[in-house]
Amino acid sequence: PVSAAEKPIELSLNHLFPEVSWFHKNAVLPWKNLVEQKSKGRLKVNIYPSGALAKSTTMYDAVKAGAADIVLDAGPYYIGRFPMSEGTQIPLLGAKSSWVASRAWMDLYDEFPELRKEYADVKLLWLFSQGPGQLFTRKPVKKMEEVKGLIVRAPGGIGDIMKALGASPVSMPSSESYLALSKGTIDATVFPGEAIATYKLYEATKYVTMSNLYVQWFFVAMNKEKYNSLPKDLQKVIDECSGTVGTDIVGKAWNDADKVGFELGKQKGMEFIYLSPEEQKRWEQQVAPLANEWIKSMEAKGYPAKKFVDAMRKAIEKYNKQLAGK
C-alpha cells in the first residue's frame, strides 16, 4: 500500500504508433496497466504516442541519453548498429505470426551473448516482430513469375527481397501507399494483415498473396540509469513485465489485429491467394542467396552467423507448432 505522501515514480514511454492505433490500445496500454498494477501504483507510466518525445529513427539515441525512459521503435531504421539483430530480417524463414517470430527471437536473445551485447547501452526489455508481411497487388499473383516487373512499395531491406523475386522496389511512406496503389503509381505493396483495416487497403486493391514474406523487428528499451535508480523491488516489477511477458502481450495483440484485418478483407471481397507448398519452396530458394550473403559477410567479421540462423529456423519451427492456432 502506498502512503499518501509517497508519489509514484513516473516513467515516460515513447512509442512510434499513433494514439488512435490498435497498437496503442491493445499492446501499449495493457502493458502500462500491468506495470502500474504490479507495482501497486508506485510506478506510473506516461505514454507518448507518435514519437512525441523523440521521433522514430532517433528513439534509441534518445533513450540512451535519457530523453525518454522507455522507447519502442522499429529496429531496421538503425542500419549498421545492430548487425546480429539484422539477421532476424532474413526473408521467408516461415514464421506464421508475429507471436511466433517474437518468441523465437527472445530464445535467441537468451542464447547468443553477441545479440545481447548489441543492446549493452540500454536495458533491453524485449524484442518483438510485427505480423508477417504479405504482398498486396493490383493483379493476382499466384506464381513467382507474376512478381517479375511489378513496381512494389517496399522500404529498406524488404526492397532487396522484392528485387530478388524480380520486382522493382520503390520506397515511400506507408501512409501514401493507399493513394499510390489505387492510382496505379505502384503495382503492389507489402504490409502485415492489420494494414488492411488500418489503411483501408480493400478500397485500393483486391488481391493479397499470402506468402509470409518477411518479418520486421522492433525493440523495447529502457534507459539504464533510470532502471538502476529504481528501488530493487520496482526493478523486479520491470523485469517481471518484460522478456517473454512483454513479447506475449504484443504478439497476441498483433495476431488479433492481423486476424481482424484478414476478416475485414474477406468481408469486403478481397481475394486471398495461398501459395502451394511447392511454390512457397521456390520463393524461398529464390531469396536464399540473401541469407547466404548475410551469413558470409557476418562470419567474415567473426560473428557466429551460421549458428544463429540455424537456431532461428529451429526456434521458429518450434513456436509455429506451439502457437499456431493462437
Partner: peptide, 16 residues
C-alpha cells in the same frame, strides 16, 4: 563520436 561508435549507415548505399 556516438555515430562513429554505433556504425550507423544508410540503408541502400551504406554510407556512414
Amino acid at each position: 563520436k556516438l555515430l562513429w561508435e554505433s556504425g550507423h549507415v544508410s540503408g541502400v548505399l551504406h554510407i556512414p
